[in-house]
Structures are given as C-alpha cells and as structure tokens.
C-alpha cells in the first residue's frame, strides 16, 4: 500500500474532479461547473486558467472581470501549492501519459536510450510564447483549438466525438514516440504552470543521508532532471518543472524523499 499512496490520492482527485464537472452538466450539480478554461466553484467563485486567459487577452478581446478574477485566484493557488500540481493532480491527460509511460517501462521501450535532437524539454516554453503570438495574429485562443486537455475534459462532460483521436494521438506519441513527449516537452499549459509555481511552498525534500542510490525515483519521475540532487545533497526539489506528483516518494524504499514546506526564512543550503 505504501508505494502507491500518492498515486492513489492523485487518481481519486483527478477522477473526483472530473466527476464533479460531469455532474454539473448531467445532473445540475453546482459544486464545480464549467471546464478548466473557466469554472464556477460552488456556483459563485470564478476560476479560470491563466494561460487560456492570456491567449484570449492576446486576441485583443477585453475579457469579463469574472475570468480575470478567476485567473488571479488560480494563479495564486498554484503559486502556493506548486504550479504543476495541476498537471499531476487535476489534468486528465496525465492519466493518459502516465499509462503510456508505464507501458513504456513494461515493454522496455527505453532500453535503447535515444536522444531527441529536435525535441528538447525547453520546447514547451517556446510553444507557450508562440501560442500567444498565434492568438494575436489569427484572433482566436490558439492553444485552445488543439488542446488535448480541454478536448478530453469536454469529451467527458459533453461527449467526445472525433476529439478522442487527439487523446489517442497523445498516448501513441508518448508510448512509441518521445518519452514524456507531451507533458514533458510540448505542453504549453504545463510550461505556464512551471513558471507560476517556480517559487511555490510545497516541495519534495530529499534526505541524502537516508538515500541508498537505488535510482527508483529517477526511473519513475516524469521530469527526472528535477531530481538532480538525489544521492548528492540534502536539498529540496525547487525546479518549477516538478509536478509534485509524489511518485518518487511512493517508490522510495529508504524514506529519503518526502513532501515538505519550503522555508524562505531559513537560508537555503
């Protein structure tokens, strides 16, 4: 049980939140309605995705105050809990790419380590900026026309249609194409949350003394470069690209990793 604690918690959160959104449409629940682009919490608190909001603003449209307030609330929330907690605790595509990644390991597709000359993890930041430029040029929120995240979410709430092909494409790309290809290289939404959560408070802490250098954490981590300190020094994972998924904590047999709160008062060693 110990080694799937956070995995289980994440799946419950992900599916629970999707269920609330689904129920809002199907049964008229008013706990969480709308979609990630813009939602209503308890029928009154507006929530909005910051990157989606930026795209709409880039088109030159003056948005309603509900969306602006919602985007501010979400930004503040992830500024505290770790930007990419969205990616691993909320985003439904995470279940798709996690499955692809798990299959990759089972099928041992990574035995021959290949380097992707053209696709670097930095690409997502370029795509993020590009998305805003294209939004401004074409006059529609550019990432929203192909975002597998909202396509999958709307699919679950309103019906998939042909949109399911986008989700399958992401699965195949991550399985047979590039390891962690979508979430770790391309997704501009994840990139935006990386930036939002750069200074966030909740972080994974590494204890070098307890570590036995088994490297299980690095195998399972979708952004393994953030664990550069493992078996080297006892510091926190402060990289904004860490998704706070807690998989490393789950698989660690030595209690060398745990969630902790970043202390800005104490000088970072």
């Amino acid at each position: 049980m110990k080694n799937i604690k956070y995995l289980l918690l994440r799946r419950v959160t992900q599916i629970g939140i999707l269920l609330l959104y689904f129920g809002a449409n199907a049964y008229g629940w008013s706990i969480l309605s709308g979609t990630f682009g813009s939602s209503l919490l308890f029928g009154s608190v507006p929530l909005a995705d910051p990157y989606t909001t930026l795209q709409v603003l880039a088109t030159g449209f003056v948005l309603g105050s509900d969306v602006l307030l919602g985007a501010a609330i979400i930004t503040l929330f992830y500024f505290v809990v770790g930007g990419r907690a969205f990616c691993s605790w909320i985003c439904p595509i995470n279940m798709v790419t996690d499955l692809a990644n798990w299959l990759r390991r089972k099928l041992q597709l990574d035995k021959e380590q290949t380097t992707h000359r053209f696709l670097k993890r930095k690409a997502r930041y370029w795509i993020m900026v590009l998305g805003l430029i294209v939004s401004a040029v074409v006059g529609i929120a550019a990432f929203e026309v192909l975002s597998p995240i909202t396509i999958m979410q709307r699919g679950i709430i309103f019906g998939f249609g042909a949109g399911v092909s986008v989700v399958i494409a992401i699965f195949l790309f991550d399985l047979f194409g590039v390891k962690n290809g979508w979430c770790g290289h391309l997704c501009p939404l994840g990139a935006s949350y990386s930036l939002i959560g750069k200074a966030s408070l909740i972080r994974v802490d590494h204890d070098h003394e307890a570590c036995t250098n088994c490297m299980k954490c690095k195998v399972v981590c979708p952004e393994s470069h953030v664990l550069h300190m493992v078996n080297k020094e006892s510091i926190m994972v402060t990289d904004g690209e860490c998704t706070n998924c807690g998989r490393c904590i789950d698989v660690c047999g030595d209690d060398a990793l745990k969630f902790s709160i970043r202390n800005y008062l104490k000088k970072e060693q």
Partner: peptide, 20 residues
C-alpha cells in the same frame, strides 16, 4: 461572430445552464 471566436473561453457554462 468574429469577436465571439476571440472571446469565448470554451467553458461550457452556457450549455450546462441550457441543459439543466
């Protein structure tokens, strides 16, 4: 329509209100 395509944030709240 031209402005609608810019403005719509695709949240679906209108469709949900219509449905319910």
């Amino acid at each position: 329509e031209e402005d609608f395509l810019k403005a719509c944030i695709k949240c679906g709240l209108c469709a949900e209100a219509c449905q319910n």
